[in-house]
Nucleic acid binder design. Structure first.
Lengths: 145, 145
DNA sequence: AAAAAAAAGGATAAAAAGGTATTAATATAT
DNA sequence: ATATATTAATACCTTTTTATCCTTTTTTTT
């Protein structure tokens, strides 16, 4: 596995996808999103349900319904998505899995890991959800496997 | 979960523990290791079995047997342990889980992730297994949860 | 031989990932 | 207003992966 869980990977890709479509004011259906990012549809539904409850995406049911994002959420940092799905273990947990490990009572690698965790956190905080719309527009990047 | 799998966390802690004991020339039994690092005994046995096959720890069976490490392996970087257990996904995989993603065909976060992966890799390569013996001796750090 | 210890393999449990079916909400046509 | 179609939400089930436990075998010392 990579740094994040598969759930989290899908969540990030989906959020980028929705942000891209949302920029032009529309809504996107779950099938279209799943197809666009190459994820299992119903598993993604569950993830988006959760993100919706947490206010990271918005949704409306019924005909012409779908997922979208408002101005404010588009500007949110990616870290909120990661934290909503995977929790903050990546930002705070001990690299060796030790519970007691802290600044006062550090494990052998505490300080080294702290640097890395901080960098991951900073990176995700400095990356807004809408940041990649342009690239996606120009076709420079894709979200499909 | 943190950055690494639980298996990998146990592996790293176990290797540190063995290194520490090995410094004074002895061998350590599996029960003692499991107890010393707070891991399930039989699960750890399987992990060490694997590390043994890969030459990261040495072992002898029978009375007075146990696990130990020779000079050369003590100097190995921690990255070898991680790679043996979790594979190199953390060092090479795409942060968004995209298969096509590469230097030529990067995903939206490719370059940001590359920095982080490189830092993790560098950190683990610059950390030798024996590096913490002193701290463990002095009781500054522990490997028990 | 007897005992001690790791190696090996399989069984079980828990968690993550993925799939199916039903329900609830809403827009639109009747 | 009512019915219908569309779409997300919810609940439940299956599969896969990860983690844990248990039993047997092999090796080695005494």
């Amino acid at each position: 596995m990579g740094i994040f869980s598969k759930t989290c990977e899908y969540a990030m890709r989906a959020v980028f996808f929705i942000a891209h479509r949302t920029a032009s004011g529309g809504r996107v259906g779950i099938k279209e999103i799943a197809n666009g990012i190459g994820s299992p549809e119903h598993f993604l539904a569950k993830i988006l349900q959760d993100l919706s409850r947490r206010g990271i995406v918005q949704s409306v049911k019924g005909p012409n319904g779908g997922f979208y994002m408002d101005r404010a959420t588009l500007k949110k940092p990616l870290s909120e998505v990661v934290e909503a799905v995977d929790g903050n273990g990546i930002f705070t947990g001990c690299g060796l899995g030790l519970e007691y490990c802290s600044e006062i009572n550090p494990c052998p690698l505490h300080h080294e890991f702290k640097d890395i965790r901080n960098q991951i956190h900073a990176m995700l905080q400095n990356t807004s959800i809408e940041e990649f719309n342009e690239d996606l527009n120009l076709g420079i990047t894709t979200l499909k496997k």
